[in-house]
């Protein structure tokens, strides 16, 4: 079950700096761990998160091994116009999730 949660303010003033919080459910298996039988557990992590604001990329993060499971990423952007924020997580083993949130700028 790929679950993601985003928290975007529903309404903001034009030019205001808004905080965006994102949480993605993912084991973030590092690829360095071994089972009790000594076999390497294959790496399975989220590789990137991209956030676009009305089609314009405003934030991009590259994720690496040794980050905690269920990564929570918080960032800010400037509220410019009403519209949609689109979040796209992608990673190993074809992991790909998209989530949208709308914002009203007054």
């Amino acid at each position: 079950m790929a679950r993601v949660v985003v928290n975007v303010p529903a309404e903001a003033k034009k030019g205001e700096v808004i905080e965006i919080r994102t949480l993605a459910g993912h084991p973030m298996e590092t690829g360095f761990r071994r089972t009790q039988l000594g076999e390497l557990v294959p790496r399975d992590i989220i590789r990137s998160l991209v956030c676009s604001y009305n089609g314009v990329e405003v934030f991009r993060a590259e994720l690496h091994p040794a980050m905690a499971a269920n990564p929570l990423l918080t960032f800010t952007t400037v509220a410019t116009e009403s519209g949609t924020l689109e979040f796209r997580w992608s990673g190993d083993n074809g992991f790909s999730v998209t989530e949208k949130a709308s914002i009203k700028v007054v």
Partner: peptide, 15 residues
């Protein structure tokens, strides 16, 4: 309550 660490579990539970 929105992005806390137990939120994903709660969503799974609701499903």
């Amino acid at each position: 309550e929105v992005t806390g660490p137990a939120v994903l579990t709660l969503l799974d539970g609701e499903a």
